[in-house]
Nucleic acid binder design. Structure first.
Lengths: 229, 229
DNA sequence: ACCTGAACACCGTTCAAGT
DNA sequence: ACCTGAACACCGTTCAAGT
């Protein structure tokens, strides 16, 4: 009753772009990328599937909008919190990204699909701003922010793939163990370094490497853990 | 006549997994990821589309095999060339990757789809081996190689997206110019750093940043160039 | 063992038609 | 301006049937 709708007032809850994106996120979370379908979306929103396309046009546009939405929520706030401790702030941005990917594994892949997608802007901005605070000289800030962004995107892709591929309750060390076993069976002539790394993969007992931004979580990255000692 | 085929000898050129993968690469190069279809593949190989699936099973498996093929060819050799100059060797591996992506833009995205995919092994191995030659202490080698791999994957994804998205003959500086113009119109309150970076994006006149592995090419990365001065 | 092609259960997108 | 649903031209995958 608050909102004075003028004109037709076809239905109580009008079909807006936001509602569509919201529903799309829900679908993606529940069923993965394959689950996002105009028809499924239409069923969920109780409309015809053509109606949705009036608001969104493409499936690509839908995916893009959903990604922007998730990333914006995850990163905003995280980067601004603390002016005095830029290192921690950058780490916070990264943590925000990885937590978002944990909750929405499909974003990890989507982030790398379009170059300089709007979804990347909040991350780039957040990192860059902290680099200024950190005292990185002007001309280097851009290159530096780009490099960090690339690194994060690469890590995000691998991380997301891991979550998406493994059953939800996979035991982390068991998985690493089987992977290590595979590495140990590689041809010693062609893959000496990788074979050698297998041991470290299985029971890397040092703490997380400095650069790794993930918090301890379900499957966090594929390396580094803090179990044992 | 050389090869003594025993048994049926159904056709002169038997349908092998290799021939299928080869044709798939051709299709992907010509038409992009959307162009890879079992039916199109069958037409190209002059078979029924069911026959192909006897050899390959999944579309995912096909994509994976094609990626492995391209990366193996691109990286092998590049990493081994030069024992005395590990830095250059690592750069060579990266160059190999980016040249491969230039020729086959779809691999950029595919690399990030599956974690620790076999396609990544040659890269990981090549980088790791050079880190040893570089004198990086044992325990740090693994973390170091992982970090470099992540960075390369992130960069590769962005790079590939750029190539895939832009028309083949896009003028690089024109593109950067329009992107810079977009950045300049961002909300100053929310995106101060990005707005500020727009200038640098437009006419970054310094040489390529140290970490950037791309050679000078058509569209190479989205940043850094060596034009002017 | 390898290949064929029909059949199935979907897709995204378009579009004339309604309100 | 917004919504509907039929129609179109595809997909990947399965599978009984052939050689």
């Amino acid at each position: 009753m608050a909102k004075t709708t003028r004109g037709s007032e076809r239905r109580a809850d009008a079909l807006t772009r936001e509602r569509i994106v919201e529903a799309a996120i829900g679908l993606l979370d529940a069923q993965g990328e394959a689950g996002l379908t105009f028809r499924a979306l239409a069923a969920r929103l109780e409309t015809g599937h053509g109606a949705i396309q009036w608001h969104v046009a493409n499936k690509g546009e839908l995916l893009k909008a959903a990604t922007e939405d998730v990333i914006a929520r995850a990163v905003t706030g995280a980067g601004v919190v603390d002016d005095a401790r830029p290192r921690e702030a950058i780490r916070g941005i990264a943590s925000g990204m990885f937590e978002a990917i944990d909750a929405h594994p499909w974003v990890g892949a989507e982030l790398s699909r379009e170059p300089w997608q709007s979804a990347l802007l909040p991350i780039f901005e957040g990192v860059g701003g902290q680099l200024q605070a950190l005292g990185v000289p002007g001309p280097a800030q851009f290159d530096c922010a780009s490099a960090i962004l690339s690194y994060l995107l690469g890590l995000a892709g691998q991380y997301a793939a891991g979550i998406r591929l493994l059953p939800r309750d996979t035991d982390r060390s068991a998985f690493l163990g089987t992977l290590a076993a595979q590495w140990e069976q590689l041809d010693p002539a062609r893959y000496p370094f990788t074979r050698q790394s297998a041991t470290r993969l299985r029971d890397g007992r040092r703490g997380r490497a400095r650069g790794s931004p993930t918090r301890r979580r379900r499957t966090d990255s594929l390396r580094g853990n803090s179990a044992a000692s």
